[in-house]
Design a protein around this nucleic acid. Structure first.
Lengths: 248, 248
DNA sequence: CGTGTAATTGACATCACTCAACCCTAGTGG
DNA sequence: CCACTAGGGTTGAGTGATGTCAATTACACG
């Protein structure tokens, strides 16, 4: 499932860099077609390849925090990342889960504004922000693609506002499962068994609930036969029902 | 305060168009410096001027709804607009209030995805989406500015997720007042008396609360001397306290 | 001076939260 | 091989912040 060219060895240490090993990552990048890079022609691909620093982050490591100066931007090629904001007293709101094909640092601002941790082992193409923006200045079609990505993010954020402001716990869980399922489908994972690599606490902090409410709601849905809770995931046994809950 | 050139007569009917009356709106546009148009040089300004359809929407009229094909984009020059999403059962989440200088239709998608109503009498520069995107294709620096606007919107949306997911009613109201005050300051209104042209129901639907909770919270803050509720607004008599509540 | 709409206030209900106990699994070390 | 531990997850009992329903007030408008 997670095919990696034998020559393409990813280092386990955080921020390990493969650039300069004679490995052409872009040429056989599995997420190229769905990432921002789809806007680039073969020649441009070799150009950006030379700017790219393939990097691996182990599970639970930090990509950046909300106060960090945004020195780099990231194209996720594998894994899952949580993006979140912390309040001074420790309350946390996860604003999104980023998957393969997603781009971090869209805003191109001086500070990230959100923190990002790898949930699973994660691989990214890292670019220095200055190099990336310089490249961007020469490639309006890439900027256009970046804008489309940002617009899509904004649209997801608006959906999440509806969820957080106006939906019940049941509906939040159902909508979460549906949207995650759709996102996994987009990157080629179409099983009705939905992997949930994040913790219950992560789900709670994404949905504006407590861990206990998340757990109880899973149990309730399981008892009514809509889902089956399995290790590190759920089977969506009654999709119609979940969809009904999610869009109600 | 709301200076209008005498020659620049705005029609009261919805979607009234002034283009072709020999009125050059851009030349003396009050929001040019803070809107997306700040990216344009004088020559480009005359170009976009010829694409612009100055339009007035009376209070309570609809600019567009979430299902509408996005045939136009809008630059708000005056007034206030609510942007919201409706669930099938009528629950509503306001995802933002748009003020002078804000741009509607940033995503450049086929559907708006959100609905927009004028709260006060509102004036906009309307552009057909096809004409605007065609213009955009020739002006990468305008696209860059549009992207900055979208990124800023995304950042606001993330802040709103924190508010909706993790803050108490008191904190939501305080944060709402602070952020609205800052936005009004940006467009030149710096008084400690903050106009609230939207209804309590609008505020409730923005903050994920009920109208009663909004009303009670205003009363509570007023009783503790932090604000004074006045017709169509509030006086922020203890800014430090409000800021403390808002950022806690 | 009535009428209608928005806002406020009060009384009560409820959904989700808090606090606490318990369970399950994986890892560790005897 | 099994006892022990630690961390994450589940479940239960009780509480509380916010929602619901209803009555009252304030204000704008004819």
């Amino acid at each position: 499932m997670d095919r990696i060219e034998p020559a393409l060895q990813w280092n386990d240490s955080p921020a390990a860099c493969l650039h300069g090993l004679g490995v052409s990552a872009c040429a056989d990048c599995r997420v190229r077609q769905i990432s921002v890079c789809a806007a680039l022609d073969p020649h441009e691909l070799t150009e950006i390849d030379s700017l790219s620093h393939p990097t691996a982050f182990p599970a639970k490591s930090t990509l950046f925090t909300q106060e960090d100066p945004a020195s780099a931007v990231f194209n996720i090629t594998e894994g899952m990342v949580r993006l979140y904001k912390l309040l001074p007293d420790g309350r946390r709101q996860i604003v999104g889960f980023a998957l393969a094909g997603d781009f971090l640092g869209l805003a191109l601002l001086d500070r990230y504004g959100v923190s990002a941790d790898a949930i699973t082992d994660t691989k990214v193409c890292r670019f220095s922000r200055s190099a990336f923006t310089a490249f961007l200045d020469k490639k309006p079609h890439l900027l256009r693609r970046l804008h489309e990505f940002a617009s899509h993010e904004l649209s997801l954020a608006q959906d999440q506002m509806v969820l957080l402001g106006r939906r019940t716990a049941d509906e939040r869980i159902a909508a979460f499962l549906m949207s995650l399922k759709e996102r996994f489908a987009r990157i080629g994972h179409t099983s009705i068994t939905l992997p949930l690599p994040m913790s219950r606490q992560d789900i709670a902090d994404f949905l504006g609930l407590t861990i206990e409410t998340v757990s109880r709601t899973f149990s309730k849905l399981a008892k009514s036969g809509v889902i089956v809770v399995v290790p590190d995931g759920v089977r969506l046994t009654n999709l119609a029902q979940i969809k009904a809950l999610a869009t109600r």
